[in-house]
């Protein structure tokens, strides 16, 4: 078995590809989605936890019947998790996949990343 990170003596100069505008564009697209989303859900979660720990009276405010604000905000955490998941799938399928597979197919056509000998 070869080392996982054995120096790639392959036909592709990765640094050259890395500097290319299409790869930089892919990288920008990726980061401009995942970083803000991560920041958003972490801040929202931590704010929720701080409210629950230090301001329980706020959570006890009744909303409807026996359902209080704490329950509504807790369920909203579930909802935002599902919504962000859905948004990410939409984003990946429509914005990331076409760009990333174009670069992958091109590099593979040039012989990059051929499987090492022990794949079977």
């Amino acid at each position: 078995m070869t080392q996982v990170n054995a120096p790639n003596a392959g036909p592709v100069d990765y640094q050259e590809v890395q500097a290319r505008e299409d790869f930089q564009e892919l990288r920008r697209t990726h980061r401009s989605f995942v970083f803000p989303m991560t920041a958003f859900f972490l801040i929202w979660y931590i704010a929720f936890v701080i409210t629950a720990a230090f301001f329980p009276d706020v959570m006890a405010i009744p909303v409807w019947g026996n359902i209080n604000l704490g329950l509504v905000l807790g369920l909203a955490q579930f909802l935002t998790t599902f919504v962000i998941t859905g948004l990410y799938v939409w984003f990946s399928n429509s914005k990331m996949d076409p760009k990333s597979s174009a670069i992958r197919l091109e590099l593979e056509a040039r012989g990059a990343g051929l499987p090492e000998e022990d794949k079977h």
């Binding site: 590809v17 890395q18 990333s100 670069i103 590099l107 990059a112 990343g113 499987p115 794949k119």
Partner: peptide
């Protein structure tokens, strides 16, 4: 090694050279 960093970044985002399913 900046070449390894470049390779890792390109692999991670595009899937070039990712391990394939066994047949």
């Amino acid at each position: 090694d900046p070449a390894k960093q470049a390779e890792m970044e390109i692999r991670s985002l595009t899937g070039v050279g990712a391990e394939k399913a066994a047949e």
